[in-house]
Design a protein around this nucleic acid. Sequence first.
DNA 1: GAAGATTGAGTGGTCAATCTTT
DNA 2: AAAGATTGACCACTCAATCTTC
Lengths: 152, 152
Amino acid sequence: VAETRWLDAGEAHVWQSYLDVQRELTSELERRLVGGAGLSGADYAVLVALSETPGDILRTRDLGQMLGWERSRLSHQVSRMEKRGQVVRQECEEDARGSMVRLTAEGRAAIEAAAPDHVEAVRQYVFDRLTREEVETFGRLLDRILSGLRKA
Amino acid sequence: VAETRWLDAGEAHVWQSYLDVQRELTSELERRLVGGAGLSGADYAVLVALSETPGDILRTRDLGQMLGWERSRLSHQVSRMEKRGQVVRQECEEDARGSMVRLTAEGRAAIEAAAPDHVEAVRQYVFDRLTREEVETFGRLLDRILSGLRKA
DNA sequence: GAAGATTGAGTGGTCAATCTTT
DNA sequence: AAAGATTGACCACTCAATCTTC
């Protein structure tokens, strides 16, 4: 039996900071989104992906891959958003197994109303806190961690 | 009306990486915890906090502050764990409004069984990917972001 | 059989209301 | 009134089962 390589004090502190940032940043961004625009973070992510796509339409499969979400989660999410009139489902012409999701005018209005404050919040909590070099370093470290997660 | 300071391409990429790491790391760690020890991340956090406290007991209020959780979330969580026999509630002698949570022998066994693989996973996905200097830098950046969130 | 998608059941977290003690 | 805690209702995510098309 291999001995566990426990975290030393420094590593433990970094890990705790990571967990704290994740919790606080997520809840603060969510709070502002919900309070200001009535959107959840999940709503926002879907609306952004669609609004940045030419034609405002995506295959459900592709949208799911962009978001990194499971099929069932996305299906439930789209159902809720469809009920609110922010997106509509369409048949997929190339492959009858698939489906398409399209942004509605209401959905576009919702994301355009929400985006400025959300971006401002991200800037305020993250990018305003770091110098240009630090942002670049932060991104490099995150990408390194990410590369280990992709193939895990 | 102030113009929105949108994210440039580099910032947008860093932000996307952050969101990706958060999603993938959380789900991977959760998957390993649940699969290996039958504990959720929330269970793990509660058990660690209690097991590191002399006497294995904490005021519910203090436990909540350590975890950064809302009162109701912690109350629900403790109820579930109490049902499983991992913790027990006790009266608070100093202040009759409060309550205490104590780790049981079963709870201790659960955390001791789960910890080695969980720490190994954190090491594998995060600390093994970074040099000593990078870990220190990562921690510094996280703490900077955190300091902006505390008082927000 | 695999891929794409949906559905329903079960679980966890949030919010508002409530209760007790300070 | 404020602090600590609990409860129940509601919403979101996960998992397994199911259905259709490739």
